[in-house]
Amino acid sequence: MNKSHKYKPLSFRTLFLILGLLFIFLLIADLLLGSVIVPLKQIYFSIFPSAETNETFRTIIVDFRFPKAFTAILTGMALSVSGLQMQTVFRNPLAGPYVLGISAGASLGVALFVLGFSSVISFGVVSITGAWSLATVAWIGSFLVMILVLYVSTHVNDVTTILILGMLFTSAVSAIVSILQYFSSESMLKAFVIWTMGSLGSVTNAQLTVMATAVFLGILLAFFKIKDLNAFLLGENYARSLGVKIVSSRVLIFASTSLLAGTVTAFCGPIGFIGIAVPHICRVIFRTSDHIILMPAVIITGSIVMLFSDIISQLPGMQTTLPINSVTAIIGIPVIVWMIVKNKKFDSV
């Protein structure tokens, strides 16, 4: 077909195949690399125990690295999908869960929960009810911000205002959190500061169950809204004239975004730049605006980027790890700068 010949040198299928292989490669690398470097064949022996299985390596892979890699994948998917949704709904390439203050809303929920009720933190880490409570406060926080954003967006027809509001809200949250920190005990403070740096490794199995369920639901909801998201590209008027029920559609999309961004923030801390950068990377690679392609594209690309970030953060061969949100910022910001300078496509979604 000459359509794909002129503008799309690689078909969507080929691109997905390449990304899929890259995903598998990085997943294996993430399991092998770290302070201890595990030989490749031990992955096989960990899954299918035999005489050659090294119990130490098996423990490292099954109990530590696999949950961490799985968390990375869930985080990448969730943040990228919520970023894509926000960029489309607001028709602004700078929108994302972090910029709009959705992550900050979740942070505030977590901060009030962890620092306000100092007795629950230990309980939150291990038990399933604790994990659910932590997630719930984050969802409430992010959803309240989303409602605020929704309210403002129906009254102010200017996206820049909404983005500035998001930034102000983020600042306000960090101010409140500082005050809470001032009044909290030293141990609580340490736990909270570590949380703010972001970590994929501290997620417990109980939390992982909650996280996987919530991310799955959020992405499922996003898939049901693919058609409406496409219509939102043309703006509210056109979307309505095509039969989209604007308010209910927006509420569902925002619910999906809050669920996704809130969950990740609850368990891994505020992680920025993935939500903005990944949808852009996908638009450059796939050269389409159709969410039927973009949605799976950001899911796989987001996973890849987070796996890559995780490999960097655990500094293979060394005993220390870096905070994950510093790594995503270091990877994400150059991508955004490069896109602004090189493609000049930044003025449109």
Binding site: F223, N230, A231, L234, L242, G243, S289, S348, V349
Partner: peptide, 29 residues
């Protein structure tokens, strides 16, 4: 409307295909 639609990576065919929106299935095929 008179509104200028500028969406990156959207072809004329994609744009016109939005017209079929009220008739397509849940995913817009």
């Amino acid at each position: 409307s008179t509104e200028n639609i500028s969406v990156a990576n959207m072809t004329v065919f994609d744009l016109v295909a939005f017209g079929r929106f009220p008739y397509t299935n849940w995913i817009g095929r």
